Amino acid sequence: MKLRICRYSISTVTVSLRLISLLLLFCIGLPAAGQQPSQKPTPQKSQKQKKKEEAAKVDTIPLYNGTYVGVDLYGIGSKVLGGDFLSSEISVGVNLKNRFIPTIEFGMGGTDTWNETGIHYKSKMAPFFRIGIDYNTMTKKKEKNSYLYAGLRYAFSSFKYDVSTLPVHDPIWGDNINNPSLEDDYWGGSVPFDHLGMKASVQWIEIVLGVKVRIYKNFNMGWSVRMKYKTSASTGEFGNPWYVPGYGKFKSNNMGITYSLIYKLPL
C-alpha cells in the first residue's frame, strides 16, 4: 500500500513540473511577441524627392548628343514657283544635353526684279550669316531626334546692289516714253537714272519657333517660323535696296519661313 502511494505522488509531481514549464514558456513568449514592431505603410515620395530623382535622370544625359547639318529648301522652292528672289542656306547645330542646340547658319541670296513704280533692283548672290541657340522644349522625351524648339538669332549681311530706271522705248514712233510713275510734278517729265554697285550692310535679330521630326534613320525634316527685326542698316545715298540677303524685303520687320532637310552625323 505504501508503494502505490509513493508512485502516485511521484507521478503527481511530474505532471506539476510539466504544467509549470508550460506556464513559464507562455509567460516568456508574451513579452517577445509584444516587442515585435508593427508594420507601417510605406510613405509616398514627396514632390521634392520626385524632382530630385528627375534631375538625377537629366544629369545622366551625356553632354554631346550629336551634330545636325541642314539644307534649306524653301528659298530655292519659292524662286522656282515664281518668287522675286533666290535664297539658299546651310545650318549646323550641336545638341548639348538634349536641351541646348547652338547653331550657325550661312547662306546666299540675290534678286533681279522690277517694282510697281518701274524701278529695277538687282543684287548678285551675296552672303549672310546667323548665329544663335535653340532650346529643346521636349527634353523629357526619350526620342532625341524629334522635338519642338524655340530660339534666338543674331544675323548680318553685307552686299552690293543696283537701282535703276529707264524710259520705255516706243516701237512705233521710235522715241522714248517717260515713266509716269517717276514723273516730276514740278518740272514735268522723268529723268532715268542708273546707280550701280551701291554698298549696304544690314543687321537684325530673329525669334525662331520650329519643329524637327525624324523621318528615316539619321534623316530629319525641319520647319521654322522666324520673326525678323532690323537693328541697323547702312545703305547707298541714291536709294535703299529692295531685298536684303537672308532678311527679305528692306523694311522694319519681316516674317520668314524655312523648310529644311537635316542629317544627324553619326556619334
Rank of each mutant, 00 (worst) to 15 (best):
S232L: 06
D194C: 05
W223D: 05
Q203F: 01
M227F: 10
P245F: 02
N220L: 11
Y247L: 02
V213M: 12
G246K: 00
E206M: 00
D194F: 09
S234K: 09
F238T: 10
T231Q: 07
I215Q: 06
L209V: 12
S201L: 11
D194M: 07
L209W: 09
F238S: 07
K228M: 11
P245K: 02
F219L: 14
W242Q: 13
L196K: 14
K228A: 03
R214D: 08
N240L: 07
N240C: 04
I215L: 04
R214M: 08
Q203K: 09
R214F: 04
A200R: 06
S232H: 08
Y229K: 10
Y243F: 15
S234P: 06
S201E: 12
N220D: 14
Y243K: 01
L196W: 06
Y229P: 04
T235D: 08
M227D: 12
R214G: 08
Y247K: 00
I207R: 08
V211C: 08
A200N: 02
G236T: 03
K230T: 02
M198W: 05
K212M: 13
T231V: 14
P245I: 00
T231F: 05
T235F: 13
M221E: 04
V213P: 04
L196C: 07
K212G: 04
W242N: 09
G222E: 11
Y216I: 11
K199E: 15
V211P: 02
P241K: 00
V213R: 08
G210H: 01
K217V: 00
E237A: 11
W242S: 09
G239Y: 03
F219C: 04
W223K: 10
M227Q: 14
R214V: 03
W242I: 06
R226D: 02
W223V: 13
E206Q: 13
G239T: 03
P245G: 02
R226I: 01
V208K: 10
V208E: 04
N240I: 05
T231S: 02
Y247W: 05
T231C: 00
K230W: 01
G197A: 09
H195A: 06
K217R: 13
G246Q: 01
V208D: 04
S224Q: 07
F219I: 15
S224L: 08
G246W: 01
